[in-house]
Amino acid sequence: MAEEAGTGLVFHPMDQFIVKPLFGDGPVHWYTPTNAMLWMAISVLAVILLLVIGTRGRAVIPTRIQSIAELAYGFIHKMVEDVAGKDGLKFFPYIFTLFLFIVFSNFLGLLPKAFTPTSHIAVTAVLAVLVFVTVTVVGFVKNGASFLGLFWVSSAPLALRPVLALIEVISYFVRPVSHSIRLAGNMMAGHAVIKVFAAFAPLVLMSGIGVVVTPLSIIAITAMYGLEMLVAFIQAYVFTILTCVYLKDALHPHH
């Protein structure tokens, strides 16, 4: 009985993350259409559907889809304005792009059989590095050398300042790492956990213990799925608001 279970259960929680060509089995070149490309393209379509097709009526009294589009617009617009300040609004299209891409990737990735681009460190690292480079360049262009004042905590006692400066510099350079790994890690972990529970679900077909395990794993999958819906939004929100915070540091480096 136990042996039966051992041979029957299949655990491949990470297989869902494999990047593979859409057509054939060839090697993955940089230009190969892959499942990653497919789901990014679906995200783009979803963005267009929501923000372009949904608002084509330009109604003063909005339709439902237009309301959602306006809600998203207002949500990020307010976030940028509140966190980064009025001069941060120049970067609103950029930040809104990041938010929409992440939120749609996260949610579309929750569809069965879907691929989640944001579960890959390659993707989130590029997003984070783009933010890091942008913020650093903006910081130096706007403030010149005084941008380095960001690392010089003038409110601390003088003796502590060099130490704090070192810590601040390190934390500044760790930002893109935490920024990217937080998103990719959350997406990957949630999807993998769902997959592990899913592997237990067919146990009832193989073993008596499945009578208990199968309902439990189905409940667990459902609960995890609900949690993942929350995480999908929260991680997009966190990534976006951190971008705003970093942008604020670049625009107004003096605490």
């Binding site: 892959t34 990653a36 993707v123 590029v126």
Partner: peptide, 9 residues
């Protein structure tokens, strides 16, 4: 697969 993902991203 990094090149592919980064390009399409």
């Amino acid at each position: 697969t990094f090149g592919n993902q980064i390009f399409w991203l």
